[in-house]
């Protein structure tokens, strides 16, 4: 643990705060999908920039952990770089960009393409933890709705989408039902990633710092995307493959090449993309 920040505790937070957050995490794991209020601290990074995820990561990270941080699927987006650096400075832990090597992955807006395994923990940064928030702005009301599992307004909303647009018009932050009990916001991941949450062998933790909520999906928990029998849930599809690795399985980002409609599609998961490039596997074979 060399070159860590002087004058601060391991992973920045003091041990009392970590204990308080771990308690909230344990409660969240015990009640999958339920939003546990916690005494979120003011962090040296801005609210809305991952303070919830950072606090969860800081509370559970150990000196032996290997940390990966992604934003939009990529390890080298500026905020991912900044958060990874924060933990290198405050905890001195090893970091990686390889999904398989990581024991702890903090993410914003994506789930890695490479399947997670038992023992790994995925920490999501959550801006608005309340899946019903856009239907009912009041916390006092939405907490009651969850308590009574009174989810009528959500089903009406999805139905109205179908009536107006012929489909459920939600592309990201697509609501899920966890363990058959709580409707949960998967955080603003594309709905493409929703099926990965279902019965995932890894522990999934969600931290919302500004809104002061933690929730969890324990390993192998049922996570269903809301739908109707005659309008089953479906994910985004692209008519092309990644321009760099040729994958037809991954979520693609659209990159604007010029101002004449030129577009290029590449994997949003940079680690996945790099490990699937044909040139790389040829290189490795040659070595």
């Amino acid at each position: 643990m060399s070159a860590t920040l002087e004058g601060y505790n391991f992973a920045y937070l003091d041990e009392q705060t970590k204990r308080m957050i771990r308690r909230a995490v344990l409660k969240a794991v015990a009640i999958p999908g339920y939003q546990v209020p916690f005494g979120s601290r003011e962090m040296p990074l801005p609210y809305g920039w991952g303070t919830g995820g950072i606090q969860v990561t800081a509370s559970i990270i150990g000196a032996d952990d290997v940390l990966k941080v992604i934003d939009q699927g990529a390890d080298d987006t500026t905020n991912a770089v900044s958060i990874r650096r924060f933990f290198r400075r405050t905890a001195g832990v090893a970091t990686t960009t390889r999904t398989e090597e990581a024991t702890l992955i903090q993410t914003r807006h994506r789930i890695p393409e490479t399947p997670l395994r038992e023992g790994q923990i995925l920490v999501y940064q959550v801006p608005i933890p309340e899946p019903l928030r856009w239907l009912e702005p009041r916390e006092t009301e939405t907490r009651k709705m969850h308590a009574f599992a009174d989810y009528g307004i959500m089903h009406v909303k999805l139905y109205e989408d179908i009536a107006r647009f012929g489909r459920i018009a939600t592309g990201y932050n697509y609501p899920v039902m966890v363990n058959g009990r709580y409707i949960m916001s998967p955080s603003p991941i594309p709905k493409f990633d929703n099926p990965k949450m279902d019965r995932n062998p890894a522990l999934q933790l969600f931290g919302a710092g500004r809104e002061k909520r933690i929730y969890a999906v324990p390993p192998y928990t049922r996570v269903e995307s809301l739908d109707f029998e005659d309008h089953p849930f479906e994910i985004e599809r692209w008519e092309r493959a990644c321009a760099l690795c040729g994958s037809t399985e991954s979520f693609l980002d659209e990159v604007v090449m010029d101002d004449r409609g030129g577009r290029m599609f590449v994997c949003s998961d940079t680690d996945y993309c790099e490990s699937h490039r044909p040139d790389r596997s040829e290189q490795e074979a040659a070595e």
């Binding site: 914003r108 592309g171 990201y172 979520f251 693609l252 949003s268």
Partner: peptide, 12 residues
């Protein structure tokens, strides 16, 4: 912050 994944979902 980048939102291009969400935005891509919206584009699709």
């Amino acid at each position: 912050l980048p939102h291009y994944v969400d935005f891509q979902s919206e584009l699709v």
